[in-house]
Simulated assay, not measured.
Amino acid sequence: MSSSLIRRACAVALLVTSTLAPAAVSAVAAAPPGAPGPEPRRAVQARLLGEKTVPYKLAFQGTTVGGLSGIDRDRCTGEYVLISDDRSFLQPARFYTARLDVDAGGVHAVDFTGTRPLLQPDGSVYPSPALGDGKAIDPEEIRVDPLRCRYWWGQEGDRPAVAGAPVIQPSVEIADPDGAHRGRFRLPENYAITPDRGPRRNQAVEALTFGARGTVVTSAVEGPLVQDGPVPDVHQGALVRVTRQTRDGRVLGQFAYPIEKIFAESDPSSPWGPDTGVPSILAFPDDPERYLVLERTWVAGSGYKIRLYDTTTRGATDVRAVDSLADRPVVPMRKRLVADFHTLGLSTVDNTEGMTWGPVLPSGERSLILVSDDNFDQEAVTQFVALALR
C-alpha cells in the first residue's frame, strides 16, 4: 500500500508493443538474482480504450467507496466484484459489486449495485486494527472462483512496526457472495511472517489469480521476502516469489519474478521512502504458465509509475526448496513490457492495483480492466481504465 501523500504524474500518448513466447531455458543457470532470461518472441500489443473516474468518497448504501485494490468479473452474474482495502476504519471491511459498461468505444459507465461486509468464521465483521486484538485484516485482492463463483480474497496481515503489537498472518479467505466465510486457502509455508523470515510489512499477498480453468491458484507476494534480499533501489531491482498451487493448497512450483529498480530518487524533503511491488497478477485463459503482472511504484516528488508485463514461469527455476534467493543463481521468470501507463494518454497515472479480463471486442482483441486505489485521499483518484490487448 503506497503513501497517499503524492502529486500525480501527467501522461502522453503512445502505442506500446512487447513480445513474449515460450522458449526452452535451463532450469538452473549461473545468473545473478534478477537477471532476465532469454528474450521472448511472441508479440503482445496494448492500446487505451478509455477511462472513468468515480467521485471522491462516493457514498453508497451507508459506505464510503474508495481504496479499491482488486477487481474481478463474476461469470454467474455478469457483474464485477471489487474489494476495498479499508481495514474497518471507516466502515467494516467489505467488497462491492458493480456493472461496467465497457466496449470498443471506452468506459461509458461504472454503476455500483451492492456492497457486503467480509465476515469472520463466527459471522461477525472484522474489527478495526485500533482494537489491537490481532483479528484485524488488510484486504487487497479478490477473485471469483470460476468453478463455484465464490469469492477468494487475499489480505496482507501485518508485521508490526512496534514491539509488542500482534502479528497478523497473511491469508486467502473464501466467502460466499453474501460475504459469509466459507474457508481458507493454504498458502505456502514461506509466506508466513516470522521474526527473521517471510513478507515485509505491507508487502505480503496482494496478487492472486485462477488459471487452467480454475484448477490452478497462483499468488505473488508484493515485495521480496526478508530472507530474499533487500527491496529495490535506484540501482537494482529485486526478486519476489510467485507460487502455483492446486485448489487444495499443494504447491506445484514457486518462481522468482524480477521487479524493476526504482525509477527516480525520492524528494529528500519527504519523510516517505519509495514504495514498489506487485499488486496484481492475472493468468492468461489459454496458457496456464503465462501471466500479466502489474508493477506499481511510488516515489516522493515523482509520483507513480505503473507498468504492465507479459511473463511466464516456463523455463524459470523452481525455487520452492530454496530458503533464500539472496546471491543465489536462479533463472527468474521472463518478462516483457506491455504498457507503461505514462505512454497511454491517460488523464492521470495513479495507484493502480487491480486488474481483470473484460469482454472480447469485435476486433478479436481482449479487453483488460484496471482500477486504482485512492487510499481515501482527496489528492488521488478512483480510476477505471480499459485497455485492448492482442
Rank of each mutant, 00 (worst) to 15 (best):
S3Q: 09
R7M: 04
A9I: 07
L20N: 01
A21E: 02
P22Q: 11
A23Y: 04
V28Q: 11
G62V: 04
T64P: 02
C76A: 15
Y80N: 01
S88R: 08
S88D: 11
L90K: 14
L90D: 02
Q91L: 11
A98V: 11
A109R: 14
D111Y: 14
F112G: 15
T115E: 05
Q120P: 04
Q120E: 13
D133Y: 15
A136N: 14
W153F: 03
P160G: 08
A163Y: 03
A163E: 02
A165F: 12
S171Y: 07
D176R: 02
F185I: 15
P195F: 09
T209D: 14
R213V: 06
G214V: 07
L225T: 01
L239E: 12
R241T: 04
T246Q: 07
D248V: 13
D248W: 15
Y257R: 00
E265C: 06
S266D: 05
S270W: 07
W272G: 01
G273R: 11
F284E: 15
E289F: 01
V299K: 03
R314C: 08
D323P: 03
V330G: 00
V331P: 00
P332Y: 11
R334T: 14
L344D: 13
T348H: 05
E353W: 00
G354T: 01
G354Q: 01
M355K: 10
T356I: 03
E365V: 10
D377S: 07
A380I: 02
V385G: 00
R390K: 12
